[in-house]
Design a protein around this nucleic acid. Structure first.
Lengths: 320, 320
DNA sequence: CTGTCATTGTCAATGGTTTGTCCAATGCTA
DNA sequence: TAGCATTGGACAAACCATTGACAATGACAG
């Protein structure tokens, strides 16, 4: 939700059309034709006549891209002032969520995920990487994490268990998804006064991707994230949280070694942290023990969307 | 906002054009023509008129190289002040980012590693990240991998074993080093006709960082890299190598489960691949069995520099 | 249902600009 | 003298802008 830092910016830095295309997910042709037909943006020009887009231009184009992909026609929205665009895109996003996902959400990503699986099957690392980066640019990071990355990983896991993909395919795809997520996360603005969460997986849990998805979600939600990777004893996690003054701790658990030990460890973690520090547990394994954990003051989140909503509700408690 | 390196630094050490070209990845012609046309840098001159570049010049050139490879035109960016360049390159890395102004002074690598350890000890993820990214821009990826990343990881491992750092510190630092390396690797140009190497660790070996260092080294050496992550059976690795028509396979082994099984697996891998496909084994565990492996046509590399030299020597055999 | 029309993304052809590389001549160094 | 660096000029490839055309889609009247 952090928009422009200050509005004096947005006019100064100038980007050539290639960068603008990359950042908006639109083709160079579209950029030019929207300008020619609708004057959607009017970029500056360099000495040789090349288009040079400001940050504000790029934000506007990205909003237009979102509006059109939500079903609006470019001719209708191209002339709108940027505030109205922002509002409109915001509303579209809300209504998409209210439709409970199945219809609109899946429209674009389903083919996206098929393509992703195809690239993985072909061991085409470059193609998969490009596809995912394009998806981030097109859909934004929230949508990407919840509706592209997570389903793609699940799908590839399924194909693997079904024997239609070899472990190598899964490894390759995981490495690339991980890389794209971390790079997108790293590109988010960072507010040092925002609430702070420590994310890891507990001892014995080596599947890192759930934790990475959670870390990126939290960062996209505006939180400061300290990411510790996989397989750490809870005492370590607690120490980091205390040392850094974190407001919350997130733990991803997918295939625990033994359920009971995990439960005990989580309780131990709870005991080591002040009650003002929230604890979130996510991942496949959490469901069975949700009720027990809730009694102990540990929140179980069932999906990334759930996690995000919890963080949003939790943030005001920790406001600086 | 910027605590620039005082002008004494960056002005002292002077490098001839050959060194500058090597370190920036730009040709000597480009270095000269950027100076002639855009005054991108104005190096000092030796007694006979030879160009002598300062460290600051070289950092600037590296940033310009990154900016142009991100799609910007040299004419647009050549005149920008170095702070803006840093910011711009940073943004391009992920696609969107506001610099919030964490500034780090980088001097020489030995103190650089000390600073890295300090950041890890303080659990300062942002500081460590900024430090490493600046180090990449200043020193170039080869130097960074061999003289910053690898020593830093080793040093942090030592501190951990000595009990002066907790596992959490090591985890945090590893995650950040990994992120910086992969993002630097991703920024390298990709030549589809270059020789191709598959990199992984074998089954039971879950320490990924050696493999990541190797993958980045190979990519920096100009090879196409298919990276498969950790803990894969050799049959899988071989299948990927065959399916993608790879010219070589790299395997990182740090703490093998059992030495004998590892040896057998490596021989099995050798047997599954045509002899034209080179096999490289690296990591701490390789030394003991180097002689035996050499007889089987498996090369043991003892360091990243060694690996890089081997790849360089090997590349012509696989030229398109 | 069909033909028409407007909308919209893509593509091709052409011409100008930018940029990396190459070359020849010259001078300095070892 | 051989080897390397510098300078200025030349050139081809890559990139970008402009224009016009085309195909796909959907709305709509008949």
């Amino acid at each position: 939700m952090v928009a422009m830092t200050d509005d004096t910016r947005g006019g100064e830095p100038r980007h050539p059309i290639g960068v603008a295309a990359e950042r908006t997910g639109l083709s160079q042709d579209v950029l030019r034709v929207w300008e020619r037909r609708y004057e959607a943006v009017i970029p500056g020009r360099g000495v040789g006549g090349q288009r040079l887009y400001s940050d504000l231009d790029i934000e506007r184009l990205r909003l237009l891209a979102l509006a059109t992909s939500a079903g609006r026609s470019i001719g209708q929205v191209a002339g709108l002032p940027i505030d109205e665009l922002r509002e409109m895109v915001h509303e579209d996003e809300g209504s998409r969520r209210r439709n409970h996902g199945v219809l609109v959400d899946v429209a674009i990503p389903s083919t996206l995920i098929d393509e992703g699986v195809d690239f993985a099957r072909a061991l085409d690392a470059v193609g998969l990487d490009a596809l995912l980066r394009r998806a981030v640019a097109m859909t934004g990071i929230h949508f990407f994490l919840e509706s592209v990355a997570a389903p793609l990983l699940r799908r590839i896991g399924d194909e693997w268990h079904a024997g239609r993909l070899a472990p190598a395919h899964e490894h390759l795809a995981s490495a690339i998804v991980q890389r794209v997520i971390t790079s997108a996360m790293h590109a988010l603005p960072l507010d040092l006064r925002a609430p702070h969460i420590v994310i890891s997986t507990i001892s014995g849990e080596r599947h890192e991707l759930g934790a990475i998805l959670a870390a990126a979600s939290a960062a996209a939600e505006g939180w400061r994230v300290t990411y510790l990777g996989a397989d750490l004893p809870v005492a370590e996690i607690a120490n980091v949280a205390l040392a850094t003054g974190a407001n919350a701790v997130g733990v991803s658990i997918i295939y625990p070694d033994e359920g009971s030990a995990m439960l005990a460890e989580l309780r131990q973690l709870r005991g080591m942290l002040p009650s003002a520090v929230s604890i979130y547990v996510g991942g496949e394994a959490g469901g069975d023990i949700a009720a027990e954990l809730a009694n102990d003051g540990i929140a179980v989140v069932r999906s990334l969307a759930d996690f995000r909503a919890s963080l949003k509700a939790d943030a005001p408690r920790h406001a600086a």
